[in-house]
Amino acid sequence: MRNIRIGDYLVEKQLITQEQLENALAVQRESKGTKKFGEVIVELGYLSEVKFAQALAGKLHVPYVDLSNFDIDGEAVRKVPETLAKKYTIIAINIKGKRLTVATDDPYNFNILEDVKVMTGMDTDPVFATRTAINKAIGKFYSMQNVDSVLEGVQAFSDMNNAEDDEESKDRVESAPIVKLATTIVENSYRADATDIHIEPFKTYTRIRIRVNGDLVELMNVANVVHNALTTRLKLISGMNIAEKRVPQDGRFTQVVDGTTLDVRVSS
């Protein structure tokens, strides 16, 4: 393989022009090492993140994987601790025998592959994926593993509160389990590419469903005693009147998930 810089490789493949390359290098120099060449190319709009990743994978002779269309193996994900996955921006996606396939945007980083090998006791096969796709997969798979712990906290909360009490104190609404529940609902909805969240009270439980590709999909069920505290929490952060329960209201709040700021609109 010829030792050619990625910028020259992109020009050779006619993915960018020589002028664009020179401009990108100038911008990178101005950043004083804070930005990688690929980041600059994408920010300038010369290539999409996917196109750049595919080109770099081709240059490095490493398979490129579109994680949005890949059936990620949950067992493989669980082999790598969340802290390690987030530290290196990696996610294990498949197991074949004693080999673990790991998606990364830095496949030639020996330290990453060695740490994964030491942690899992398995040999690793790197594949290339975009950083955005990896972060989204990390959020989706590890957050779903954390849902059980959130629900355990919510159950403990419900055991300590009276289901017949409609008055929500500030302490109850801002308790850690309720805050975590509200945050987790939005996080998991975003990572599932949902467009809507529906919080539906029933006699013995509250059902939370999300709309994905036009269909309502169940996200989780929680004890009905949690309903008032959860909806009051959402009203509070949305700037709505928590004392008003008869008149429909609209509000909104923002939440950052995986580096993306979401604008969440709320209707009651």
Rank of each mutant, 00 (worst) to 15 (best):
F253K: 07
N224D: 14
K59R: 08
S175W: 12
D165W: 00
M1N: 07
T101Q: 08
T124V: 15
I185S: 02
K36D: 06
M1P: 05
R211I: 03
V225A: 15
T206G: 02
L262G: 03
V154E: 14
R252C: 06
F202Q: 11
N162Y: 01
K98A: 13
D159S: 14
Q145H: 11
N213V: 06
I16V: 05
A163C: 00
N111C: 02
D71I: 03
L234T: 04
P126Y: 12
N213F: 09
A194Q: 06
T124E: 00
T104G: 05
S158F: 02
R211G: 07
R172K: 13
E12Y: 10
P201S: 04
Q155R: 15
T231Y: 13
L56T: 05
A223Q: 14
V266Q: 15
I210Y: 12
V42Q: 05
V212H: 07
Q18R: 11
I208M: 00
N23E: 15
L15V: 03
G33A: 05
N213R: 10
N111S: 12
I72E: 00
F52L: 11
I199F: 07
F202H: 10
Q155C: 08
L15R: 11
S267K: 15
P107F: 11
N161T: 13
Q249G: 02
T195Y: 08
D159G: 10
S169Q: 01
R2K: 12
V80N: 12
G251W: 11
A137E: 06
V116H: 11
A176Y: 11
E244K: 01
V264M: 15
E167V: 07
M160N: 14
R211Y: 09
Q18L: 12
G239K: 08
A26Y: 13
E49N: 04
K86I: 09
R131Q: 08
S31Y: 05
E218G: 11
V173M: 15
S238C: 09
G259M: 04
I112P: 01
E12H: 10
V118C: 03
I185P: 01
G139Q: 01
K203Y: 08
G153F: 09
I242N: 00
S175H: 07
T232P: 02
K36E: 14
V247P: 02
S268F: 12
